[in-house]
């Protein structure tokens, strides 16, 4: 019986089960949690982390790492605001932001794959460079949005649900499909499992890695644009520490830092658990300072779970 339970908890879908149990308990115990207003607020609060987690999942699954996502989101948010202010066209702003995001990601991927520089170091460098670009381009100040239409990106609703939540859901579906049903997704997991064996099996390792980082950049831009729209301005200091929240959510969702293991369902749940923890603490009026501690503890627990899972599956 206990063995059975252990097997389920440590299995691929174990985290989903934990989530359902945790959600039920919270819904029953915490007043105002299960209200429409709070649920929408919760979903909106996880949009940024959730969007970036989609591609961070690929990055980690391929045994890579990306620390530059926070800076990239801030920078692309700035670009979107500045470009749309100057040209008067929101579409041009969005296009420019996506291009810049893709460029940053491509540079990351190219340096990591072709020059064989550790991903942690490379993205630590670009994290600072890109943050610097964001500060330089705005002279360190926040830049307000001129066209009120830009606010609508974050404010508009479809069937009562905010647009950013739809976008998040869409990205979950798309990247879940890419991971499980495409050669690209399988190659990502194979590379994370064993990069040299994947190369010898004919997978284009360099190209796959560059694509992963380029996609990561584009997705950061999406998150950056929505963030700028929500806070009605481009902020050079936005999304500081985003990389840590995103990586935490992925690890919580069972993505192995050793590469080769990731599921979209797990990542969604990881993102939601992080969001719920914060939401519940807010509802219960727990001061923000304590929230850091709780977040840290959750991450530690997640890593220990990952460890248990890995050792439970080693046999013979």
């Amino acid at each position: 019986m206990t063995n059975q339970l252990k097997k389920i908890l440590l299995g691929d879908q174990g985290i989903v089960l934990i989530f359902i149990v945790a959600f039920t308990i919270v819904a029953l115990l915490v007043p105002n949690f299960l209200t429409e207003r709070n649920m929408l607020g919760l979903l909106q609060s996880v949009v940024t982390v959730g969007i970036v987690a989609c591609t961070m999942m690929f990055c980690l699954a391929a045994r890579d790492f990306d620390l530059s996502v926070g800076s990239t989101a801030a920078f692309t948010g700035m670009v979107a605001v500045m470009a749309s202010n100057t040209t008067g066209s929101i579409l041009v702003g969005i296009g420019a932001a996506l291009l810049c995001g893709a460029f940053v990601g491509f540079v990351n991927g190219f340096v990591i794959a072709k020059f064989r520089i550790n991903a942690l170091i490379t993205t630590l460098a670009t994290m600072q460079i890109v943050r610097g670009l964001a500060l330089i381009s705005s002279d360190g100040r926040a830049i307000g949005i001129n066209d009120p239409g830009f606010y609508q990106l974050a404010l508009s609703k479809l069937f009562g649900i905010p647009t950013p939540v739809w976008i998040l859901a869409g990205l979950f579906v798309i990247f879940g499909f890419v991971l499980n049903r495409t050669v690209f997704g399988k190659n990502t997991l194979a590379i994370g499992g064993n990069p040299e064996a994947s190369r010898l099996a004919g997978a284009n390792v360099d190209k796959t890695r560059i694509w992963i980082f380029a996609l990561q950049g584009v997705v950061c831009a999406v998150a950056g644009i929505l963030l700028a729209s929500r806070i009605t301005s481009g902020q050079p200091n936005a999304a500081v520490g985003l990389e840590l929240s995103v990586i935490s959510a992925c690890v919580l969702g069972g993505v192995s830092l050793a590469g080769g293991r990731a599921t979209m369902a797990g990542v969604i749940v990881g993102v939601m658990i992080m969001g719920i923890a914060e939401n519940v603490m807010n509802l219960m009026n727990i001061p923000a300072f304590y929230q850091y501690i709780v977040r840290g503890l959750i991450l530690l627990l997640a890593v220990m779970l990952d460890n248990l899972r890995s050792s439970a599956f080693i046999r013979r």
Partner: peptide, 9 residues
Amino acid sequence: KHDGILQGR
């Protein structure tokens, strides 16, 4: 181990 199998898959 190094060049053949894809661990974890």
